[in-house]
Simulated assay, not measured.
Amino acid sequence: MPHTHPWLDITRGNAPLILSIPHAGTDIPDDIAPTLADPWLARKDADWHVSALYAFAADLGATIIRTRLSRTVIDVNRPPDGASLYPGQATTDLCPLTSFDGEPLYRPGQEPDAAELARRRALYHTPYHAALVTEIARLREQHPRVVLYDCHSIRSRVPRLFDGDLPHFNIGTNSGASCAPALQAAVERACDVTQFSRVSNGRFKGGYITRHYGQPANGVHGVQMELACRGYLAEPAWPLDATNWPPAFDPTYAAPMVSALTRILTICRDWALEGDRT
């Protein structure tokens, strides 16, 4: 799809399946980099190697939308007004000021002000969502229902955000509001026959993308999948630093997770295709 945003990658397919990859990017624009406290810290909380993990999705006919930008630049999975998705719980903002572990991301006095927030919103947040709107509309013209699958991962242990080890599969459907119950149940069954643990609508119920676009009554079914990194990466022991994080992507280590995700996405696609026949 032609566009003028070098940081935005769009792969078009014709199956009723869209993958959104909002947090796997690591690029930081030259005008923002000098304001940051540390380049490694600014990339620490990326959804590492998620694009490689889901590389098979294009062969399923999926449309894939991803940003190359670090979530430190702007988090396209947050509401444009910056409202908290998890009131009362620790979370990160539209333009995060701290890492998941509470470390300051910016040099003192260099944090983005209101004007800078507005600039980044216009440059990066708005185009990402315009792409989602365009691709949803295109596929809804072809299919009665479309699955929007939002791809995420996070370290297995982040004490500031949750207790203990996160389950491998964390399905978020905004407590059942963003997709049909039958689709959620099908994804849960696909997870439960694997070697991996699973929870639905636990600590992660779906971000802005899932909650905003998941409108089952309008034929758009949103599912967020948050993966604990240990399911596909050899996570190092603490402390984390630039010498051990992130681990390299090892296709052999990741193979069981890739197999499970292939089955999950195939089920999502085929469930949506059933709508073509009804």
Rank of each mutant, 00 (worst) to 15 (best):
W40M: 12
R43F: 05
R43A: 02
R43N: 13
D45K: 05
D45T: 08
A46T: 10
A46M: 03
W48I: 00
W48A: 02
W48G: 00
L53N: 02
L53I: 08
Y54F: 15
Y54N: 03
A55E: 14
F56C: 05
D59M: 09
L60E: 11
L60S: 06
A62M: 08
I65E: 06
R66C: 06
R66Q: 15
R66N: 09
R66Y: 11
R66S: 11
T67C: 06
R68Q: 07
R68V: 01
R68P: 06
L69W: 02
R71F: 09
T72Y: 04
V73I: 15
I74M: 00
I74T: 05
I74V: 15
D75M: 04
D75W: 01
D75I: 02
N77E: 03
N77L: 04
N77R: 08
R78F: 08
P80D: 10
D81K: 12
G82H: 04
G82E: 10
S84R: 13
P87K: 07
P87H: 10
G88K: 06
Q89E: 12
T92I: 14
D93E: 15
D93Y: 00
L94P: 01
L94H: 01
T98E: 07
T98D: 00
S99Q: 03
S99I: 03
F100W: 12
F100T: 03
F100D: 14
D101S: 15
D101T: 12
D101F: 03
D101P: 01
G102C: 05
G102E: 00
G102D: 11
P104S: 13
L105T: 10
L105Y: 09
L105Q: 00
G109C: 09
G109F: 10
G109V: 06
Q110W: 10
E111Y: 10
E116T: 13
E116S: 14
L117N: 08
L117Y: 14
A118V: 04
A118N: 12
A118R: 12
R119H: 13
R119M: 13
R120F: 00
R121S: 07
H125S: 01
H125F: 00
T126V: 15
Y128N: 09
Y128G: 06
H129N: 11
A130H: 15
A130K: 13
A131D: 09
V133W: 04
E135D: 14
I136E: 12
I136F: 09
I136K: 05
R138C: 14
R138E: 03
R138Q: 14
L139Q: 02
R140I: 04
E141Q: 15
Q142C: 13
P144R: 12
P144A: 12
R145P: 06
R145F: 02
V146T: 08
V146H: 10
V147F: 06
V147Y: 07
